[in-house]
């Protein structure tokens, strides 16, 4: 840890702050999008849009929201997230397989 004890040059600290602000801006934008998607999802159901159309759209909106959550809020887009991404995709693959099974070959 010795390499961290030295004081940081001022310009680097400023640069980092700017970077953080930039990232925060992206996160606020993704939050706004998520709220928007939620409004659309609830709106469609309350308006009674045909279920043949609405179910795929609902699922799509949910998946996009979750992508925002994972990549922006949880920083999966940043460097050093290869292994977390690998394991999340692994989990998602098994999850998908499980859900397909339970909706198709479980009888009735």
């Amino acid at each position: 840890m010795a390499d961290h004890t030295g004081s940081k040059p001022v310009h680097q600290a400023e640069y980092e702050r700017k970077q953080h602000r930039e990232e925060m801006k992206q996160q606020v934008i993704s939050f706004v999008m998520m709220i928007l998607f939620t409004f659309v999802a609830f709106g469609m159901v309350m308006a009674g849009v045909d279920s043949f159309f609405v179910i795929p759209v609902l699922l799509l909106l949910a998946i996009v929201q979750v992508v925002f959550q994972l990549y922006y809020f949880m920083h999966m887009k940043n460097k050093g997230h290869d292994m977390p991404a690998l394991m999340m995709y692994g989990g998602a693959a098994v999850a998908l397989l499980t859900i397909i099974t339970f909706t198709t070959i479980i009888w009735w």
């Binding site: 397989l97 339970f102 009888w107 009735w108």
Partner: peptide
């Protein structure tokens, strides 16, 4: 549905 157990167990 008893098949749920079988699937979960073998998954």
């Amino acid at each position: 549905n008893v098949i749920i157990w079988e699937h979960l167990f073998w998954i």
